[in-house]
Design a protein around this nucleic acid. Sequence first.
DNA 1: GGAAACGTTACG
DNA 2: CGTAACGTTTCC
Length: 265
Amino acid sequence: MSTAVDIAGPSSPDQAHSSAKIPNEPLRPSLKRSNHPYSLSHYISTPSPAVDVKSLMQPSSSQQRATQPGHTKPRRAPSWPDMWESPSGLHLAHAAELLMRAGLLALTPATTEQAKGGGSGPEEEEEDSSACSTDFQPFLGAWFPFSPALFPLAGFQMGGGHWRSTAMGAEGIEGLVAEGYSPSSLGGSSGGRRKRKRCGECVPCRRQTNCEQCSSCRNRKRGHQICKYRKCEELKRKPGGPGFESRVNLPARGNLRWSWADPRS
DNA sequence: GGAAACGTTACG
DNA sequence: CGTAACGTTTCC
């Protein structure tokens, strides 16, 4: 029962079908570079991950410092834009799913708080971007920044500008991204309704081919809609929906924040 | 409430 | 100008 990762779509005839003019890159050229070096099996190499990883869950300072000698700060994580541009989106997504299934992907608010710690001025945003990410290097052997693209895939739900973890009570990590919502595209000023753009990062956006089976594909001429399996998760949300603006600090780009809501609360 | 149809915007 | 696709309206 593979948690329907809809990137597979309806039995994926897409590979064969793929309609004529599907833009290969969702939004950014960088997305094209989604060739990740690791296959799923790469992550499944440990026979008893539950044990192994748990010990790694407290990598403690030793491991962290090993990678970052001479600095008191937790190593500098890639800035958000960096993460966004990560060529290894699927790579990370795969890892996320596996970790989620193993119940290992725990997000510790402490990480965030501590990282933020002493107070981060705006100018420290870059440096402190580590505060916005939880790294899973111990698990993956590579930095594992969060990306919204991971969550739908890993069993996360999105609601009202918050991502919820259905797998665990993750909480406290702040911020969320609403890339694609530029102030203007939100219909801010001109009053006219502006079109939002695909985020380019979510699973559907990453999908490159139309299924040719869904109603949207079959009815493209009249429907004017993108394949259902390619419909951006962000665009599915109502711009004025609950929490859209109030909860998401409308991202002055580079000031993106994550929000986590504890499903238990 | 969801799907279909249509208007409209964005872009090459 | 043609096409893709978002947003809105209408239909069931």
